[in-house]
Design a protein around this nucleic acid. Structure first.
Lengths: 148, 148
DNA sequence: CTTCATGCAAAACATTTGCAGCTGG
DNA sequence: CCAGCTGCAAATGTTTTGCATGAAG
């Protein structure tokens, strides 16, 4: 939908790491590649399994550490699922709405209008200074609707 | 803000339990009272500590079981926090937006306009059949803004 | 070289589960 | 009575942490 070219996205991430003087290790590079390219909102464990294919000695702890580093640098977006598991979007790290299928877990990321207006309304009504938001819609995707 | 009278709210919950033929035990009643009355979006552990004051033999597992039962009956709303902890709103169990202070965790629940329109737009753009949503804004509450 | 990152295993949490015994309706 | 609920403790799943070793800059 609004995915940029993978190569460009990974360069942004690398630039941010260098700028903040974090080291570029082979493990980090492998994780960045997956996050930059993935359209599928992988979980930490998904990433772990994929990284191990390319770089077998990588540990789960390293994946966790890298993913939270990217989260802090605003280069990855964390989706916290109701079941406790988290998923990550490294392709489009700005907050954006998701539609999540409660059955097959498929996620779509369409652009919606008026989110800024909503944020402004929230800020005005509460006095909060708002930094980011999470907006998730839960339901059945078209395929799972048919199967019922 | 939009809190109903606590007695009435608890009666709604009890009616739903009876209707579905779930038993009304003292432990459940104590938990319902807390959820129906609380304005503060308590965590399971908050509820557990409060229940034990009134009914000391209650176990954590029972609180978990009761809270998930109420969630399934649509009599309690679950807020999944990014840090993994969950909080519950038994006072207003329909999905509604929250403003959450990242520093002191204070939560406000103002009414926002246009959420239905947004849901409709999401449904139209994705083909998903949408059941519920989560909308959380994260930022600094007025008090914590002053303290900085 | 020096500092930071990695990998491993253990720890820390939050939540779930199995099951014997209790109890609400 | 007896199906369903409770309490306990053990199991599970996810994320974090401490620390010795290794490698990036």
């Amino acid at each position: 939908m609004h995915s940029r070219e993978p190569g460009r996205r990974i360069d942004e991430m690398l630039a941010k790491l260098r700028e903040r003087e974090f080291r570029i290790t082979p493990q980090r590079l492998a994780i960045l590649k997956i996050l930059a390219a993935s359209e599928g909102h992988p979980s930490v464990d998904d990433i772990y399994r994929e990284v191990k294919a390319e770089f077998p000695t990588t540990s789960l702890a390293t994946v966790y550490k890298t993913v939270s580093l990217l989260k802090e640098l605003n280069e990855a977006l964390e989706l916290s699922f109701p079941d406790g598991s988290n998923r990550y979007d490294g392709n489009n790290p700005a907050p954006h709405p998701h539609a999540i299928c409660v059955k097959c877990k498929r996620i779509m990321d369409p652009e919606l209008m008026n989110i800024d207006a909503l944020t402004e309304e929230m800020s005005r009504k509460t006095g909060y200074k708002i930094f980011y938001h999470e907006l998730e819609f839960f339901g059945l995707c078209p395929e799972c609707q048919k199967k019922n």
